[in-house]
Structure formats: C-alpha cells, structure tokens
Simulated scan of single mutants.
Amino acid sequence: MSGLLQGKVAIVTGSGQGIGRDVAVCLAEHGAKVITNNRKPGSSLDAFEKTEIPFTDEERAALESVKGDAKTTADRIVAAGGEAVPFFGDVGDFASAGRMVQTAIDSFGRIDIIVNNASSNWVGNIADMDEELWDISVVSKLKGAFNLIHHALPHMKAQGYGRILNSSSDAFLGLQGYAAYGAANAGIVALTKAAAGDLRGTGITVNAYTPLAKTRAWYNAAATYRMQGVPAEMIEAGAPEAMKRTAEGMVPFLAYLASDDAAAISGNLFKLAADGEIGLWSQPEVVRQITTDADAWAIDVLRERVPGELMAGLSNDEGILPVR
C-alpha cells in the first residue's frame, strides 16, 4: 500500500485476533514495523472472562475461523512482506509492559506508535461482581494503557514524535451489565484527554476511539442470546449494521491518526464503525441547571425544584442494552 508510516515502529496490544489484528496488519501495510501482542500463545473461544458458553458446532466453527495470537498475526504480516515481532505478555502487568516496549527498541531501534487495544471483559450485574471480576476489566484496559504509555513516553519524548491511540468503547456511557468495563473505558477517555494536554508541544499526540465491528465478542453475544431463547433472525435484525462486518475497512483511520499528517489532532474521542462511519464524540457539557441566591440550598426548595426543573421530563429507566 502507501508508505504513510514508513520508518515508524508500532506496538498493538491485543492484536492476536479481532480488531487488534486488523489494526496491526493495516499499520504494517502502510509501512510500519509492528510488535504484535497477546497474553500467551493460542487463544480461547470465550470472549467474556469467567463465562463458559456451550457453543453449537456452527458457532464453534465460526469462532475457530477468527481465532489467533500474536505469532499468527506477525506471521501474516511477514508473509505479506512486512516486518513484525510477536510479544507474549500481559500489558496489565507493569513489568511486562516495559519488556514489550524494550522489545520494540531491541528489534527496531525505536517506538513511534502505541495502540492500546487490549481488553478483557466480564458481563453481569454489579451485585454479582467481586474484586477479581472488577480487575478483569479495569486492569487490562485502563492500567494496561497507562503501563504502556509510561514505558514508551521517554523514547517518544527523546525523538520528538509519538502517536498514542487508545481503544475505548461506547460502554463508557454506562451500559447495563458493564459496570467495570464501562468504568475502564470512561477512564480511557479521561486518560486520553489529560495525557493529550500534558504532552502538548512535545510532538506526541493522544487520541481515543470507540470501535464497533464483528469480532469474537459478537459470536459470544449471539450464542448468549440463543441460550436465552432469542430466535436467530431477531439477533441478526437487532444487531447494529457495524457488528455484521469485520474491521478491515475502518482501521485505515487509525493509520491516518498515527501518521505525520495528524500532528494537529490530539485529545479527541472518535467513533469508528465497520459500516463506514467515522464520528467525533462531543465534549460533555452541562445541559440544565438550577441556581439559588441563598447561602445554602433549603431541602424544601430542592424537593420542589429538582423534580420540577432539573430532572423534568427525564427518566432513569434505560432498559437492557445489547452485549458489546
């Protein structure tokens, strides 16, 4: 393809399969040398941690067709004429993240691009969540992003160039059943905006994106709905169009953000969908307020004005939202 990223070196975490694999392959196609990554050789059919789904033969075959690990992705890049080195290790572990960055330096002499794509997820009611289930989502996604940023920044600052791309999710809005995962992804948005400000003027940009495409998680979600008695045609009809397509067509936008051309773009949250949509999320803003001239709010005034003005016409009943 193009030489857009010629001479650049990238790390893509969680790039053994799914969107991460497509990102790694795309960056390589545009000239980047890539460190591919997942926790250990091989992969599981289960997208949701601590959750076992009895897949049908058809579902199992579909999942087998999309599974892979850091080595299979690196092999694919090399077979196409690119350069890639696999790294097996958990980015949620601080020392492991440091070794991943050092692998890029030892293999290719520099690190220019990091794509914090890795994540783990447990889906369920917060009343059933314990510390381990919380950590499954928060450590891999949020701490993992910090770990890699921390270890890569000294090299990026020394060379005056860096592109940090953080994968978030629309779960940051607070989707039912995704308390920990949503919190981790909301943290990614805040981390991105704060880091972009901290690094302004250094040649390093930081952006985040919420991807939506057909991945292993979609197959797991469809199997879960099937187990709940939802007909296959209803599952297909209810899925967003982007979840019916794989990610190859949407990831070139990330290659663009990683390039010299995007030097002025930092601190943003983008929506990225496999059906062709690229969007820019709005900045949060106060949409309604009440004020008082008194020194302190009186409870009887709040009882009247909160439901009558501040919360008028609003409902907290959002219903059950689909598995992402």
Rank of each mutant, 00 (worst) to 15 (best):
S2C: 05
V12C: 06
G14L: 07
G16L: 10
G18Y: 11
R21L: 12
K33Q: 06
T36Y: 06
S43P: 05
E49R: 07
T51L: 09
E52Y: 10
F55T: 15
A70S: 08
V78F: 08
V78K: 12
G81K: 12
G89N: 02
D90I: 10
G92K: 12
A95G: 06
M100Y: 06
M100I: 13
V101F: 08
Q102W: 04
V115W: 00
L133K: 14
W134D: 01
D135Q: 10
I136L: 05
S137R: 02
V139G: 02
S140A: 13
F146I: 14
L148M: 14
Q159W: 04
G160A: 14
Y161D: 00
Y161H: 04
D170I: 14
Y181D: 01
L199T: 00
P211I: 04
P211T: 08
K214P: 02
R216K: 15
W218R: 12
N220S: 09
A222F: 05
Y225L: 07
R226N: 11
G238E: 08
A239Y: 04
R245D: 00
A247W: 02
G249R: 06
V251L: 07
A258W: 03
S259H: 01
A263R: 11
K271I: 07
P284M: 12
V287T: 07
R288E: 04
T292Q: 10
G308N: 15
S315C: 09
G319T: 00
R324F: 12
